[in-house]
Structures are given as C-alpha cells and as structure tokens.
C-alpha cells in the first residue's frame, strides 16, 4: 500500500538541497582493528525539512551527524566523501571557514543537556557567550544588548526570561534542554543537527519540547537533521527518514511510507518490533540475532545473517546499493531489484 505523498513535500524536493551528503565514509581506529562506522552514506536534506536518521545503537547515525558538523574526535576520522552544505564541501573547510559556518549557519543540540551546559555559569552568560563567539560584528553589540537577546531567546523556547540569571542546576532537565535549544537558535541557523535531543527526558516533557521545536521551525524555517533511536518519535516528527544498519543507509523514504509501507527487510522487521498505543494489538517478534561486529562485518548485505528472506548466494556475497524503488523512496536490497525505477521518475 503506497501512501499518496503530500504535495508540499513534492515541491520541496525540486529545489537544490541545503545539505547533500555524498558517499560519506567514517572510520574508527581501534585496538582491535579498523571500524567503518559510516560506509558510503548518501542523502539530501532540503530547506525547511526535518530529515531523520534512525537505527539501533552502533548503526552509525550519531557518527554521521558528528561528521557533518566536523566535531568527530580521534580515533574517528573521515575517510572519504563529501558533505555539501549550500554547495560548499564542509569537509574541505579550514578552521576559520568552519567557524564562519558553525553556529551561524549550522548548530547542534546534543543528547545530554546536563553535560552540554557549564554548571558554573548562568544560562544568560552561556547564551551570550555563544552569541559573541560566533556573530560577526557583535563587537558593537553591548553587553546589555547581548543579554536582551538572551532573554528574548529564553522567551522563544518557553522559559521565563528572568531565568537568565539562573544556573543550570536550578533548572529541571526539560528546561535545561530548552536552554540548549535556545543556544542553538541564537544566530538563526539554517540547519540544526539534533542528536537524540529528548532521550534523557520523560515522555510528557519530550512532547512539550518537540511541540516547541516544531513551532519554532514553522516560525523560522530552519531545517533539522534529527537523530533518534525512538522510531515512533522519528516517524511522527520527521518529514523523511533514513534507516541505518551497521554503518549503511538501507532505506530512505517519507516518514509515513517508512511506517506504513517499509520495503527493506530490516525496516519491515524494525517497524514490527515495537508496540503502539493505538491500532490492533498484534504479536510482535523483534529481529533474531544482533547487529554485526563492525570489525568483521559479514560479506554481502550486512543484514543477511538476520534476514529471513535472504537469497543464498547473492545476498551473502554481493553488497546491495541504495536504489530508487518508488516516489522519493530508496532502499538497498537485492530482493527489491524488480522495483527499481528510473532515477528521474523517482526524484
């Protein structure tokens, strides 16, 4: 069953992507050997779009997010590919050029707000620091103006502006994460990378924060690269979703298609791995086995040892690539060969 695509999504893809990730390869040098945590990952993210990267722990979703923002630390290094942001390859920028883009055009919200904020500075000071470190020409902005802007930002994310003088420990977990979002918004970026922004929070607070982010996006029109292991949240919040498995992107589709009409055997089984609150109560099975050790990944399709429809031979030896299989729908699976459509039709 194929869902009709919303037309505003269609229009969106016609424009040049804001972010285009091409064949990104990230490797980790570990004592046990080389781990390829992201292996030829390619996807586009459009203006005003929420693109989600989902997958289980160790699938490489955070690695991709960190590579895009160039905050990977050794032993990780980018071994290949391009990250085109507004047609400029972020991977080729020097530190000064990177500084120009970072925070002014791309900002980041990390998983743990507890660790992202300094415990010894007031939230106002921390917002002001972000403003002054990155905004060109803030030299002219007085301390007064900077603090006014900090109050404005707190107000935007639903915190009483008088909290500028509070320290992080005086705020609840949800409020701290709101402060982190305020800092990410400080310079009106075009893209915000959100790496598990609500994972440490309870579901009611998560809902408050996700509603707030959605509202801010409608207001300011930034794009979001959204990383989460929570598939329900992912499907609900994202416009399009990419599913990663063992370092590879195995399926990319509009989020409703990922949920209602998944094609890759891994996605199909993943969507049958979590219970929902509404709809019929059906027996769920999960996926037998565990994701592979990336030091010695299986040959062929990396999912084939856990796949109950894998073909003897081909799936075990030949690695499938991401192919267009329908309207804005791509998957990497040999069994979907007969569904491959012309690239032009798909985009």
């Amino acid at each position: 069953m194929t869902q009709p695509m919303p037309t505003f999504d269609q229009a969106r893809t016609d424009a040049e992507p804001l972010l285009s990730v091409r064949d990104l390869v990230v490797e980790y040098h570990t004592q046990r050997g080389l781990v390829r945590a992201a292996d030829h990952v390619s996807f586009d993210l459009h203006r005003n779009e929420v693109f989600g990267l989902a997958g289980e722990s160790g699938c490489g979703k955070s690695t991709v997010a960190h590579a895009i923002t160039r905050i990977l630390k050794p032993p990780a290094h980018i071994a290949g590919g391009q990250v085109l942001f507004d047609e400029v390859d972020v991977l080729k920028l020097n530190d000064d050029q990177l500084r120009d883009i970072r925070w002014r055009r791309i900002s980041i919200v990390f998983q743990s707000a507890m660790n992202a904020l300094s415990p010894v500075l007031t939230v106002g000071t921390q917002i002001a620091d972000a403003l002054q470190a990155h905004e060109n020409g803030t030299a002219q902005m007085t301390r007064r103006q900077v603090l006014d802007r900090a109050r404005e930002l707190l107000d935007l994310v639903g915190i009483d502006p008088d909290r500028v003088n509070s320290y992080p420990h005086q705020l609840s977990g949800g409020m701290r994460q709101r402060v982190v979002i305020a800092i990410a918004l400080a310079l009106n970026p075009e893209l915000i990378v959100m790496d598990e922004p609500t994972t440490a929070l309870d579901v009611v607070v998560q809902k408050q924060i996700m509603d707030q982010i959605r509202e801010l996006r409608n207001q300011f029109g930034f794009s979001i690269l959204f990383i989460s292991h929570d598939l329900s949240l992912m499907v609900e919040f994202s416009d399009r979703v990419g599913i990663m498995y063992a370092g590879e992107l195995v399926e990319v589709a509009p989020s409703q298609a990922i949920f209602n009409d998944p094609q890759h055997p891994y996605t199909v089984r993943l969507m049958n791995s979590f219970p929902t609150l509404s709809g019929p109560r059906v027996e769920l099975f999960g996926i037998p086995g565990s994701p592979p050790d990336l030091i010695t990944p299986p040959p062929g399709c990396r999912f084939h040892p856990r796949c109950d429809v894998a073909l003897a031979g081909r799936c075990q030896t030949e690695r499938p690539g991401l192919q267009p299989i329908g309207a804005r729908h791509m998957a990497a699976c040999h069994l979907l060969d007969d569904k491959i459509v012309n690239k032009e039709d798909a985009s």
Binding site: V204, Q206, K207, L233, E236, G279
Partner: peptide, 19 residues
C-alpha cells in the same frame, strides 16, 4: 501521559495538547 506518547499508528501528527 497517553497524549504525550508519540504514536505513528494514531495518524500523521498527534493533536497538540496543552501541557
């Protein structure tokens, strides 16, 4: 609590609840 749980089976978007 139930209105806050993300639930893709419920539809495209959950209703905005004032929490």
């Amino acid at each position: 609590l139930l209105s806050a749980v993300p639930d893709p089976a419920r539809g495209l978007r959950t209703q905005e609840t004032e929490i």
